[in-house]
Amino acid sequence: MPDIGGIDLFVLEFGDILHYYTPYTTTLFLLALIFTALAIVSRPEGQIDIAFGGDAYYAKETTLPEMRFRRFMAIACGLATMGAMGSGDLFNFTLFASLVGITNVGIVAAVKNRHVLNAAYEYGIVAMVATLPLFGGAALILATTGTLSIPALAAGGFAVPFVGKALLVLGVIGEGMAPFYAAKAEMFRAPGAPYVIMCSLSSLLIFLRVVEIAITI
């Protein structure tokens, strides 16, 4: 395998699906872990908003059930991200990416603000549509090479079609990278910082991972 993420540190086996960690993915994994831990232990902030045109300001409160639900979603998002970081199987990776997409929607879906919900819905449509490039890319690579295992593909000897890689990357970009960030930016207006930053973190991390995958295979 080309040394782009460094040598394998250790490999976790789940039947045909390997989880392997290079220094690169370990770094990403640790970051996901740290932010998940932050999301678990920290309470949401009391966001202050200014009423424009006056001196008034008001605080947005996050209710307890809402906080619990969003914390649950943030943790799920963190776990999904960690899974995607280590996954050594293309299809498994795409599944994790879809899970990241849906948990991102979930993190903001509990907010009652109409504007944020609109953004979440638009983002959700893109996240759902992105399953086509994701699964399509994985299926294309499976059909043309006969394997889904990233280490096996990286070992060389396979002609991975360019379209397959492009589809994979596009699918992950659809989960919230530039230039499809507009809805994400609006989603960030929702209160509940520890949970909301998981949205951005997760899409950044899976993007970083898919770049590694696209280069290695």
Binding site: L95, S98, V105, G124, A127, M128
Partner: peptide, 24 residues
């Protein structure tokens, strides 16, 4: 074996999004 997860992913996202649409 891959179609089954694909199907479930599609259905579940559809369910979540339809509910969000309703609330929105």
């Amino acid at each position: 074996a891959l179609i089954l997860p694909g199907l479930v992913v599609g259905a579940s996202e559809l369910i979540a999004l339809s509910e969000i649409y309703r609330i929105k």
